[in-house]
Structures are given as C-alpha cells and as structure tokens.
Design a protein around this nucleic acid. Sequence first.
DNA 1: GGATACATGTAAGATGTTACATGATTGT
DNA 2: ACAATCATGTAACATCTTACATGTATCC
Lengths: 182, 182
Amino acid sequence: MKPDTVLGHALLGSLQQEPRSGYDLRKLFTMTPLNHFSDSPGAIYPALARLRARGWVVVSRPSGSRRRREFRLTPAGRRAWVAWLRRSPSRADVTWNLDGLMVRFAFMGGRLPTSAAVRFLGELARELDAHVRSLRRYLESAAGSMTATGRLALESGIESYEARARWARRARRVLARGRGRT
Amino acid sequence: MKPDTVLGHALLGSLQQEPRSGYDLRKLFTMTPLNHFSDSPGAIYPALARLRARGWVVVSRPSGSRRRREFRLTPAGRRAWVAWLRRSPSRADVTWNLDGLMVRFAFMGGRLPTSAAVRFLGELARELDAHVRSLRRYLESAAGSMTATGRLALESGIESYEARARWARRARRVLARGRGRT
DNA sequence: GGATACATGTAAGATGTTACATGATTGT
DNA sequence: ACAATCATGTAACATCTTACATGTATCC
C-alpha cells in the first residue's frame, strides 16, 4: 500500500502514543512548534478519513452526532507507521522535503530502537554532504552570472545544509552513547 | 489584486530579465538548484496562463500551433513583481515559508535598490530572532515530556534558524558596504 | 527519412486552504 | 438561560503531481 502524506503519518504517530480525537490532534498541532502542519479541520478530518479507508485506524463511534470520536491505530496502521519511520532518507527527500525528514526523525523516539535512529542520522549526514557538494559545484560554475543577492541566497542554502549535517553527526554521537540528553 | 504563488512570482522574475517561453522556464528551473520549484509542465503552463489572465504577461503568438511562444512582462506585471519583492518578511513567512522568502531575496538583485535588500535582511533577522525565542521557550517548557529524538529535532530547527539569522546579518553587512562579492 | 531535441499543453487525481455550518457539554 | 468551549464536518476553490498526447524544427 502506498504511503500517505507527511500529515497522515504524523497523525498515525500521534495516535500511536494514545487514542485521540480529531479535535485533540488539531490542538496538538496548534500547540507544538513542529510546524509543517496546519491545524485546519479541512486538512485533518479528511486525512483521518483517508487513514480509516486504508484500514490503518478505527474509530470509537459511528459518525452522525457531533460527539467526540476517538481514533486508534490498527495493527496494519502500526506496521505502516513503522515502515514509514524506517525508510532511508533519499537524496530527493533531502532536496525537496527536509522538514518531512525531520518530522520522521522526531517520531522515532520511543518506538524504534536507538540503532535505527542512529543509522538514519548517518545516512542523512551522507546525503546532506552530497547535496552540499552539488550546490557548491553549481555555485562555482555559475557565480559569475548571478546577481549579488542570488549568490548570497545560494550560500545561505549551502550553509544551512552544512549546519544540518553537523547537527546530524552530533546527534548521532549523542544517541549512540545512549545519553538521552543535550 | 491578490498576489500569486511563489511559483508565479518566480516566473515573473525570470521573465523580467528577458522574455522566455514556457520551455525555457522549465529548463531554467531544472538547472538551477534553487529548488522549491518543480519543472513539471503541469505546473508551469497553468501558472503562465494565470499570469496572463491577470494581465501581468503577454504572449508573442496565439496558441494553437505547437510553435514557441514567448512571454513578456506588462507594466502591471512589473508592478506586481516589485510589490512582491518589497513585502516585509512576516512572522508567518518565517515560520511557514522561509524558502519562499529566500527566493524573494534571490530575485532582488539588480532591480531593487540595495537599500531595499538591506532593509529586508534586517527585518528578516529580527523575525528569525523572535521565532528562535519562541521555539526556545517551548523547548524549555516541554523538554521533559519529549522523546530524545523529538528534542533533538527541535534543537536542530532552532540551530537552523539561528544560522540563518547569522547569515542575514552577515549578508546585510556585505551588501551595505557595497561589495558585490562573498 | 528518421532520430533527437524543441515545444506546448491537457486530464485525472490528490491534497490543502479558507470559510462556513452546526451540534454537544459544561460551568455560572 | 447563556456563554464558552468542545467537537465534527463540508463546500468551494486553488494548486500541484504524474502521466499522457502531440506537433515542429534541425541535423545527419
């Protein structure tokens, strides 16, 4: 079965912690600064319906009245969620969807063995390095034909990926040593 | 008139440099690593049609045959594009759409006076600082209830915004001194 | 005449945004 | 009774992705 969107998997991850209603999930996304998600009902309720259609969640009460309805993961939902967490970070993810990758990492805690998170960070660092190299190549070849702000913007992107790669290596060491803090 | 999407404005910015066809624009977006844009015809051709409907571009040849059609900015298109460039970076932009802000900055070169880019960077740095403060507050209040990877992911976000703020201040100095390089 | 690159577009479908509509529960 | 907040959802619309369909120019 095809993976869902980042939103869908974030819902799955939140439901995996404990059963919640659509309203709970909206509040959760409003309050946490893991921005990336809107708290709009027009996104969350259809996404929950989608997860239900895939058999990944079940709901505590038939629809109809406007009473609270709690969603809980099915075994298939848990499998889909773990499969999502376990995917290796691809070059395309790094280029187009780094935020989604970070959301995935944030959800790994607790459920996946530390070794999986450590491996993820190693692969992420490698892909980030490769992406930085390709951006640098482009900068060298095109710097002459770019405007000052264009060049600065590209440099800012490169620095940002480099900082993320440094973080990934540091976080990897922290996790590998089994210290849960810093 | 309502602003268009980031894609629409990027097309406007590219057309402002010189008239181009949809095909040229696709190749341009494929080759530059200012990723954020796909090069899919299904995005670009409808976006060009949108710009045309708004009276922001005109086209060199009626549609019908599959010959090259070049788009060029109208005066209204140029005004809309400059208005987009001149918008102050808002907190919402910083939180939800930092990439779009960087694309905007990249396009400022050449057409806008340096002072406008300098002001933009000052405001951007201020908004980034404020965002970092709010993320730090959240981290302090919630660190106890977060998993190790959740905490690390949030720290990574904070560091990334801090790095961007440092870049903005550095870039501001570089531009303010009128040196076009580094 | 055929390959390759140039070039334009649409169709179906997924997802998300904004705005709206409405019912249920709890505290005062 | 009333207000606040809890709670669920839809409708209209915009945008983008993927896949497809097709015509045109140039070079060999």
